[in-house]
Amino acid sequence: MAEDLHVVQGNKEEQYRSLIPQIKGLLDGEPDLVANLANVAAALKEQFGWFWVGFYLVKGEELVLGPFQGPIACTRIRKNKGVCGTSWAQATTLIVPDVEAFPGHIACSSLSKSEIVVPLIRNNEVKAVLDVDSESLSYFDETDQRYLEEIVALIVI
């Protein structure tokens, strides 16, 4: 298990390429889901300094707040509601350049301006979503999508 995170400067792709092996080290040999989600959220927050990063877990008909880094957050989100609930319902990654323009956006914080939500899918079923918010408009792109999907695929659930 890795105990220190080596934060790398450089372009976004270089940062992800450095971070992924470190996340693998954090997850290697640790069977506890909460511990793994907490460490992944912390590693992403520390590397990129995003406003909010965390997980929502599917529990029945709702997403329930899981491990996260950042200010307090919405605790429960219904399917098809907001960006997270829509990503869950569609089982697809959503990149939202301006959360104010997203129909039905749930404003957990008025400081959040853009968002990416990546579903964690196992056996053709969404089990959780990774939610990342930025204080900047149009922050997330296909590079984030590709690498965050790779990171989410590493999590055993």
Rank of each mutant, 00 (worst) to 15 (best):
L130H: 06
K45Y: 10
E14A: 14
I157R: 06
S112V: 00
I95R: 02
P31L: 07
L33P: 02
D28R: 14
I151F: 09
I155C: 07
F48Q: 06
K113R: 13
G49R: 00
W52S: 05
N11K: 10
C74K: 11
E125W: 05
L154D: 06
G60L: 07
V129G: 00
F55A: 00
G10R: 11
T92H: 04
K113H: 14
V34R: 13
K45W: 11
K24N: 07
K24A: 04
L33N: 02
L57Q: 13
L5K: 03
S136Q: 15
K127I: 05
T86C: 03
G25L: 03
E14H: 12
K81R: 14
P67N: 10
L33H: 02
Q9H: 06
V7N: 04
G60P: 02
Y16H: 00
A153E: 12
G60S: 08
A42R: 11
D144H: 03
H6S: 09
V53L: 08
L19D: 05
A42I: 08
V40P: 03
K113G: 07
E135A: 11
Q90V: 02
R17I: 10
D4Y: 06
G29V: 10
L57T: 04
C74D: 09
C108K: 01
E30A: 10
L148Q: 05
A91G: 02
V126H: 01
K59Q: 13
P21V: 07
Y139N: 05
Q90K: 15
S112K: 04
I155V: 15
D141Y: 10
G10W: 02
S114C: 03
I116D: 00
V64M: 06
Q15A: 00
K81D: 14
N124C: 13
K45V: 07
E62K: 12
T92L: 07
E100V: 11
W50P: 01
D144M: 05
I106Q: 03
C74V: 14
Q47H: 10
K79D: 11
I151W: 01
A153R: 14
A107C: 12
Q69A: 15
N80D: 15
E13W: 03
H105P: 03
R78N: 12
L137K: 09
V8Q: 00
E135P: 00
V99G: 08
K113I: 06
Y147M: 06
I20A: 08
H105E: 05
S109D: 04
Q145A: 14
E149P: 02
S87W: 05
S114G: 08
G10K: 04
Q145L: 11
E115C: 03
Q69G: 09
T93S: 15
A153Y: 06
R17N: 11
N124T: 13
Q22S: 00
E14S: 13
Y147S: 03
Q90P: 00
D28M: 12
P71Y: 12
V64P: 09
F55S: 01
I20H: 03
G82M: 09
S112H: 00
G49Y: 13
Y56H: 04
N39T: 08
W88V: 06
T86P: 07
Q69L: 11
